[in-house]
């Protein structure tokens, strides 16, 4: 009983602190509300740079949430809303940057670096293996040739 009461109080406290940042908006459908939350989480606050607009209580983030809500009510698609934000605040505003243009380097760099690393690794392994082979006999090419010749002669005379 007491545990339940404490849990209830904690839940109440948490809900109060959450409501302090986020205003309440009315949505036409639950689906629209889900899109609101998803987009608010993906759009970056231009002022407080390491927060999305859902988490930030900077005035600019409030404005952008209001704008987001208005656009959703108007029936804008996700892409239209993102275009609207990018036109004003640049690619920076998207936490998940789009592929192409300025962000090409950002998207391709990991793949290119991985490829480079694999090439280096492959070359190291190859050269290591060659070195191992040589180390096994301990002979130079010339000596190896002489040894082969000697063995062949031995076999013929036997």
């Amino acid at each position: 009983m007491r545990a339940a009461l404490i849990a209830g109080l904690i839940a109440l406290l948490l809900s109060v602190s959450a409501a302090a940042v986020i205003e309440t908006y009315q949505f036409d459908t639950p689906e629209q509300e889900a899109r609101y939350h998803q987009l608010a989480a993906e759009l970056r606050c231009p002022k407080c740079q390491n927060q999305n607009i859902a988490d930030s209580n900077a005035p600019i983030a409030q404005d952008l949430r209001e704008q987001l809500h208005r656009q959703l009510q108007r029936g804008a698609s996700d892409d239209e809303i993102k275009d609207f934000m990018v036109a004003r605040y640049g690619e920076f505003v998207l936490y998940r940057p789009r592929f192409g243009g300025d962000t090409l380097l950002l998207w391709l760099a990991p793949a290119v670096l991985l490829l480079l690393a694999l090439i280096v690794l492959w070359r190291v392994v190859i050269s290591q293996r060659n070195a191992d082979n040589r180390a096994d006999s301990g002979l130079s090419e010339e000596e190896q040739a002489r040894l082969d010749a000697l063995v062949a002669e031995e076999e013929r005379s036997a």
Binding site: L64, Y89, G90
Partner: peptide
């Protein structure tokens, strides 16, 4: 209302 500010991409 900050509408022009929004169109300008004003952050503050």
């Amino acid at each position: 209302k900050g509408t022009l500010g929004l169109d300008l991409g004003v952050t503050g």
